[in-house]
Computed example of a mutant assay.
Amino acid sequence: MNPVAPGAYAQSMQQESTYQAARAVAKAVESHFAQHRAEARQNGPEAALAPAPPAHVIEAILDAAFWASLRKEEGQSPKISLAYLSPEMAGKPLVFEHRFPLTPTILAKLAPGVERPGIHLGVWYEADHLYIWGTTQEVMSYGFVVDVSEPGLLVVKHRRGDGFGKFANVAVLKGDQVKLINEESASLPDCPGLLKPLLNLSAPFSGDSTVNVLVQLAVSMRAHQRGGTLLVVPAEATTWQDSIIKPILYSVSPAFSNLSGLMQQPDDEKKKGPWLAAVRQEVGALAGLTAIDGATIINDRHELLAFGTKIGRAYGHDPVEQMMITEPIVGNEGRVIHPSQNGGTRHLSAAQFVYDQRDALALVASQDGRFTVFSWSSCEEMVHAHRIDSLLL
């Protein structure tokens, strides 16, 4: 490995972190990675798995990333991704001639050149010191990654075992708040299919492409930062129209089926680059429509039916008076609240729609980044609001 840059020094892992949330979460994150790596090793060669970082390494990386997030370089806050691996584990990495210390100052300096999605700064250790060695676009299965997307917000995640789809979120740190993702939420009887691949952190993401498209739509809706509502209704049903105020100004006839056509391609086609690129393009276009005032409506075959629609209470139905709200994080307990306590008009109308149309889903993005999935709970006999923004970061 190349020497340390002149005048620089690597960060000693013996130094005590000053970001208390990093220390609080490090042991739990260490256990998560050790457990999943051990389980994955039983199903494949150990050489294909990323190293599981110890707690003091996790704490040091989180500490440096947090303080870097609060700095600015030329007026811009850093947007960086750190991956814990050596250059030899990184495929075809870009390796710096000199190592750089893992410090907030260096991270802030490097951030403008590595903020594009898919680029990670490689972090490794030697002689009990952490250092930055270069960049990589390849991360091994279950590789430890820390994303910094805004000041004070860190997301710990890992690459899934099959290498497809969104990285699995493990923990979210925002200031002094720590949220550990609760994988056991996926086993609840009323957990919507949309949530299961996000919560099952060890499962392949590419198994159910229908569900995965809804996940991609959720991520894209949140990304445009304008807020929006997406209603998913059964393909053969028409009763959903009872909950939409007439006339429907932006109805689509016949239903727009580009995305649906892609989803009907043979399974072997769905693993190829052109298919994946086409799906991303259609998902982005569909999610973009949710930024228009009103709800966008698709059926469960991914056909676009209408957008910019206004939700109203179905004739003869009572107003929704209560709902269950949960968030899939460790320690969270469900609360029964009035829907008006969960947000504004967008959230209340989505809760009413699902209350009236119990075989439908409503996905609601807020401008502030909150994301909620509304479904009908047959166990609780009420609307269930699932807060999932911690899974989509």
Results as ranks from 00 to 15, higher is better:
173 L>C: 02
203 A>P: 00
254 P>F: 00
184 E>R: 14
248 I>R: 11
210 T>F: 12
266 P>K: 06
167 F>T: 08
241 Q>E: 14
166 K>S: 13
225 Q>E: 14
225 Q>H: 12
179 K>Q: 15
281 Q>M: 08
233 V>S: 06
240 W>G: 05
189 P>W: 04
194 L>K: 02
211 V>K: 08
225 Q>S: 13
182 N>S: 15
227 G>K: 04
166 K>T: 11
192 P>R: 10
279 V>I: 11
251 S>C: 07
191 C>Y: 03
288 G>K: 13
180 L>T: 02
264 Q>M: 09
193 G>W: 04
191 C>P: 03
244 I>A: 09
162 D>E: 11
174 K>M: 03
287 A>C: 12
201 L>F: 03
270 K>R: 15
257 S>L: 00
240 W>R: 02
261 G>L: 05
180 L>K: 03
259 L>S: 01
288 G>Y: 11
167 F>E: 12
275 W>T: 06
211 V>H: 03
251 S>H: 14
191 C>T: 15
187 S>Y: 13
232 V>Q: 05
182 N>R: 14
165 G>C: 11
213 V>I: 11
244 I>F: 10
260 S>G: 07
188 L>Y: 12
206 S>Q: 11
268 D>F: 13
293 D>Q: 14
281 Q>G: 02
165 G>Y: 14
169 N>C: 12
294 G>Y: 08
195 L>K: 06
263 M>D: 01
182 N>I: 01
178 V>D: 02
293 D>Y: 08
243 S>G: 11
224 H>D: 07
185 S>N: 11
263 M>I: 01
247 P>V: 10
272 K>F: 00
243 S>L: 07
259 L>H: 00
263 M>C: 03
209 S>P: 00
260 S>M: 01
162 D>L: 01
275 W>D: 08
208 D>K: 10
231 L>K: 10
204 P>H: 10
224 H>N: 08
187 S>M: 09
294 G>I: 09
174 K>I: 02
210 T>H: 13
286 L>A: 05
252 V>P: 07
282 E>R: 14
240 W>T: 03
260 S>Y: 03
238 T>F: 07
239 T>A: 13
233 V>D: 06
250 Y>I: 03
204 P>Y: 11
217 L>C: 07
203 A>M: 06
220 S>P: 02
223 A>H: 04
281 Q>A: 14
261 G>E: 08
213 V>H: 04
290 T>C: 14
214 L>P: 00
280 R>W: 04
177 Q>E: 15
282 E>Q: 15
288 G>C: 09
233 V>A: 04
249 L>D: 10
269 E>H: 08
219 V>Y: 04
268 D>K: 06
266 P>V: 03
199 L>V: 07
229 T>K: 01
240 W>L: 02
228 G>Y: 06
252 V>Q: 09
247 P>I: 05
233 V>C: 06
221 M>D: 05
283 V>E: 09
228 G>A: 04
248 I>E: 12
276 L>Q: 14
164 F>V: 06
236 E>G: 00
266 P>Y: 03
255 A>Q: 10
276 L>K: 15
277 A>G: 05
218 A>S: 15
290 T>A: 11
278 A>W: 07
293 D>W: 02
292 I>Y: 11
221 M>V: 02
222 R>Q: 13
224 H>F: 07
225 Q>T: 10
281 Q>D: 13
184 E>P: 00
235 A>Y: 08
193 G>F: 04
215 V>F: 08
230 L>G: 06
290 T>R: 12
171 A>S: 13
247 P>H: 10
189 P>L: 08
230 L>C: 07
229 T>E: 01
282 E>H: 12
